[in-house]
Design a protein around this nucleic acid. Sequence first.
DNA 1: TCCCTTTTTGGACAATTGTCTAATAGCCTC
DNA 2: GAGGCTATTAGACAATTGTCCAAAAAGGGA
Lengths: 187, 187
Amino acid sequence: MEKLKIYFKNIGFGGNDLDKTLNAFFLKTYKKGDFFIEEGKTSKHLGFLESGMFQYYVIKDGEERTTYVSIENTFVSSVMSFVSQTPARESVRALTDGQACLISRIDLKRLANEIPPFKDFYIGLLEWAVCGIDSSRHDLIVLTAEQRYDKMLREEPHFLQQIPLQYLASMLGVTPRHLSRIRNNTR
Amino acid sequence: MEKLKIYFKNIGFGGNDLDKTLNAFFLKTYKKGDFFIEEGKTSKHLGFLESGMFQYYVIKDGEERTTYVSIENTFVSSVMSFVSQTPARESVRALTDGQACLISRIDLKRLANEIPPFKDFYIGLLEWAVCGIDSSRHDLIVLTAEQRYDKMLREEPHFLQQIPLQYLASMLGVTPRHLSRIRNNTR
DNA sequence: TCCCTTTTTGGACAATTGTCTAATAGCCTC
DNA sequence: GAGGCTATTAGACAATTGTCCAAAAAGGGA
C-alpha cells in the first residue's frame, strides 16, 4: 500500500489519522481478467490502484464497449454503483495483473465521521471525479472524434502509450476501425 | 427562496442550521438571456433554481451547442469551474425569466465547516452530480442516439415537454435535423 | 528463433449523421 | 386576424462513421 500512503501523505495526512486511514484499506491482488466489479452487482468497495490497469466496459449487442480505463495511482470505482448503492451498469476488470487497496463504503462513511480530514479527502475525491467526468462528457458532445483524439494526445499521452488502442477507441466514442483512420490522418 | 427552504427541510434541516443555511444564499432574478456564468470566467456561485430554465452551451464554429439544461428545483453550476475555480468551458444563461438562490464558494466552504449537516449536504450534492453526469457520459458512449432519445422519453418526459427540441438535440449529441428523423421513426 | 496469439491497420461497401435549405407550424403582439 | 418571430420538420446531397473482413505488425512464451 506504498502508493496509497504517499497519496495520503501528499494531501497532508500524518500520525494517527494516517494510520487509521491506511488500516481501513486492505490490499487485493488481481490477475489479468479478474473482476473488480461485475455489471448488475452492487459495488461495495472503492479502490486505489497501486499497480496495473482496470477496464470499465459493457457488453452491447454481443460485443464489448469500453467506457474508461484506470491506471495506477488513481482511484477505481463504478462510480454510480458505489455512490448510490445500485447495480452497476458496467463491469470493471483487470487488463493486466495488478494490486489495489480497497475500502468498503461502510468503512469510508465511518472514517469520514471519525476523521474530519478524511471527510474532506472524500469531498476532494468527489470534486475531482465530477470535474473529470463532466469534462469528458463535455468533449463527447462538443468535440469531433478527431479533436478528442488530439486532446488525448496532448493532455494524456501516457494513455496512448499504456492503453491498447482498441480500448481507447471506445472511450473516445468511436470504433477501432475509425480510430485507425483518425491516426492515419493526423500523422 | 421557498423551494430552497423545502429542499433543505426535506433533507432534515431545521432550527438554527436551516436559518444559517438559508441566510448564506441570496435571491437573484434573471431575465431571458441573462448569464449565470460566461465561458472563460470563473464561477463564483452555486445556484438553486427556484423557477425558470438555464441553458449550458458553447459556441463551436460559430454556432451554439447545448450541453445541458437545468430546470427548477435543481442546482445550477458550471461544475468544473465552480469546483476547481478555473475558467468555465461553457456559458450558462437563462432560457426563460426565472429566479435562483445563489451561494458563493467561500460561504459554501464556511458553512461546511460551521454546520456539519451542511458538509454532508455538499457531499450528497456531489454524489448526486457525479452519478448523473457519469450516467449521461456512459449513455453517450454506449447507446445510439435513438436509444438515448427513447431513454429520455421514458425517464425524463418532462424534459421533452419543457425544453425546446433544438436544445435537447444537442444534449443528446445530435443535430436538430437528426433528432427530427429519430422522432419521426419512433412514433 | 519460431510459432501462436493478440493488436493494429486498411479496403470496400453500407448505414448513420450532418449540412444546406425551404416549407410548415406555432406563437406572440399589435 | 395579420404580420413577424421562432421552432420544427423534412428533402437532397455530402461527409462521417460503422461493418465485415483480411492482411500486416507486434508481442510473448516454448
